[in-house]
């Protein structure tokens, strides 16, 4: 057996996985050449098709972890593997949704959604039919020709989701995508995300500081420590998917889990 084949056999199930292997990351600090350690000794394996939420106090390096998987930054130590390969930079295999919808104001809703396929040089007919499908799934019918500034925050985030989904990337990286929305809109966006996931089935890494959100969406939540971020606790969320929010929050098991997680987040460092 030649080397690449052996490698392929060894990592037979790595295709849809995201692996952080003893990852450390630090930024150059302000004065005096000091460095800020954002994350340290972070190891996590995200299985193909699973939904993992990163939870933690603000400034704990959740977004740094996501940026490393996205390829916006390189780890200063350890390895980040997406689909079995080390991350060398951003790429269209990882759909990204930020807290800010980041729509291009000079493109209408349709053209914002089709940006990815256009950059990849896909035929327009094919792109358009894919766009129609995700416009329908995200409830954006009738808004195709609207300019981003004519939309509400929730509608903008729907466009951002459709833009990330249209190429059906095997990985989705989401950085507090609903953090800036009001509670009602946030819930309907979470339900949208759940329902579309039944269709697309990507591996998702989702950063949030909202425990309810994590428990509603995730198969597994990962609680991080304050800076430098390490993994404090990995908690499986046992409720079957898809979940019903109103029923879920009345479930005593949910409340107990929420208590545990809140406690884990707020627990001071010395109790580890």
């Amino acid at each position: 057996m030649d080397a690449p084949a052996a490698e392929a056999a060894a990592c037979c199930r790595t295709e849809g996985r995201i692996v952080f292997d003893r990852v450390a990351h630090s930024f150059p600090g302000g004065s005096g050449g000091s460095v800020t350690e954002a994350v340290a000794d972070f190891s996590l394996e995200i299985e193909q098709g699973s939904f993992v939420c990163l939870l933690g106090p603000s400034g704990c390096g959740k977004s740094t972890i996501l940026n490393l998987a996205a390829g916006f930054e390189r780890p200063s130590g350890g390895r980040v593997l997406v689909g079995g390969r080390p991350v060398t930079g951003p790429g269209p295999d990882r759909g990204i949704v930020f807290q800010d919808a980041n729509l291009l104001p000079w493109r209408n809703v349709l053209k914002n959604i089709t940006l990815g396929p256009e950059l990849a040089g896909r035929p327009w007919e094919e792109t358009l039919s894919a766009a129609r499908r995700f416009i329908r799934l995200t409830g954006l019918e009738g808004f195709e020709r609207h300019a981003p500034y004519e939309l509400s925050g929730g509608m903008r985030q729907r466009v951002a989701l459709a833009r990330a989904w249209i190429t059906e990337p095997p990985f989705l990286l989401m950085d507090e995508p609903f953090g800036a929305l009001d509670a009602q809109t946030r819930l309907s966006m979470q339900e949208l995300l759940t329902s579309v996931r039944q269709v697309t089935g990507a591996t998702v890494l989702f950063v949030t500081h909202d425990v309810d959100e994590a428990l509603f969406l995730a198969d597994k939540t990962v609680v991080m420590t304050p800076r430098p971020g390490r993994i404090r606790q990995e908690i499986l969320v046992p409720f079957p998917q898809p979940r019903d929010y109103e029923r879920l929050i009345l479930n005593p098991a949910f409340m107990e889990l929420k208590y545990d997680i809140l406690h884990a987040i707020r627990r001071p460092e010395y109790e580890i």
């Binding site: 996205a70 390829g71 916006f72 951003p90 269209p92 990204i96 930020f98 980041n102 940006l115 950059l119």
Partner: peptide
């Protein structure tokens, strides 16, 4: 910066 990251994440080349 966010728009540049978006472009890169969607696979844009430097020219694009």
């Amino acid at each position: 910066q966010g728009r540049l990251r978006l472009g890169r994440a969607l696979g844009a080349t430097d020219r694009q």
